[in-house]
Design a protein around this nucleic acid. Structure first.
Lengths: 190, 190
DNA sequence: ACTATAGCGGAGGGGTGCCTCCGGTATCAA
DNA sequence: TTGATACCGGAGGCACCCCTCCGCTATAGT
């Protein structure tokens, strides 16, 4: 259909040149991913720096604002989500949608960030959201067209449902999956 | 069946005797309910006191710990939830469960608190949770026995699903209900 | 090895929140 | 009215976080 319109999420944060600087940059990114995933987007930046074994000044040099750091983590995962959507195109309609949602659930940092930011109108969040919707909507519409997904809900409904469920507290991964599958049963046609 | 076993949630916080003190107590409770509902259980106590038009000292005199204040709001709503469960007993199985879940969704402060505390093992949270489960489980089991709800999930699964969805961000109330109903469709048998 | 400099890290100022303490005030019983 | 006292409220000490600034250090090119 469309001519391979992969959305490009440009993040204007570059890995530094010097070896030591690159090490710190990567350590910060890893610590941030972890922190945002467990504590949410409001995680303490000083704690992230500490966790990365780096001074707070170094964090701010690489990522002048919290948003910059968040973007570096978040945009990366959204990008992967877009790629996952392309790969899923070959599967049958329902499996394609399902596998993409699995990927969605897989990104710990992303799911929390998405959940907490669904109603935030930051420019960067809007961009990321747009990219994600562009990637996922076709899968959903295909499932609908194939009569596998009900047509009285929107992709937005679905995504909020899934992200709400993924962000909720469960006793273990098995319960999370169980609940998720039940909810998705509600999305199937008939 | 059981002989009217209404769980008693004892909160050892009493309204003060003096008129001015009672006014402050009530104002604090109202402000706290509002704050916990919108900002979550970590809402600033000083902000709550300010909102209630009361000194921070007064807040601490009435509710020595954050947990005490939270309990006063939370236990009250849980109690009402228990009563709602009793009232629902007369309805047909599925409607009974449904109406109770509606009530659950209705308590703004409670749903946030529940969601944020599902995995917290505070003594008071455990007590409140036990009461709520005692109230809701019979409704769910009745729906299962009547062949209206699937039997491969537990009441705990259901409650986490619903509270996850209620706490999630939606554009409006209509969307929240739409999504909730879809997820509940997944819970219905067949 | 040497040096220019990219990069480091933490001290420190400002802000907010938690909680205690106690001099002052409003209430109520007599 | 008056006195005893229950109750008020905010100042202040501590902790944590945000963010900036700048003297010091490790790196990389020669």
């Amino acid at each position: 259909m469309s001519e391979q319109s992969r959305p490009v999420l440009h993040v204007d944060v570059r890995r530094p040149q010097r070896a030591d600087a690159r090490r710190n940059f990567d350590a910060l990114l890893a610590a941030a991913r972890e922190a945002f995933a467990t504590k949410g987007v409001e995680a303490s930046l000083e704690e992230i720096a500490r966790q990365a074994g780096v001074g707070i000044g170094t964090l701010y040099r690489n990522f002048p604002t919290r948003q910059d750091l968040l973007n570096a983590v978040y945009f990366g995962e959204i990008e992967e989500l877009c790629i996952a959507a392309e790969k899923a195109q070959d599967l049958p309609p329902w499996e394609a949608l399902n596998s993409w949602l699995q990927a969605f659930v897989g990104y710990a940092a992303t799911k929390r960030a998405i959940w907490e930011s669904l109603n935030r109108e930051t420019e960067s969040f809007k961009t990321a959201r747009a990219a994600m919707y562009a990637a996922g909507t076709p899968l959903f519409e295909r499932a609908q067209a194939a009569g596998e997904a009900r047509t009285d809900i929107s992709f937005d409904d679905l995504l909020r449902m899934v992200s709400g469920l993924t962000a909720a507290g469960f006793t273990d991964q098995a319960q999370r999956n169980r609940v998720l599958n039940i909810a998705l049963d509600g999305v199937r046609a008939r």
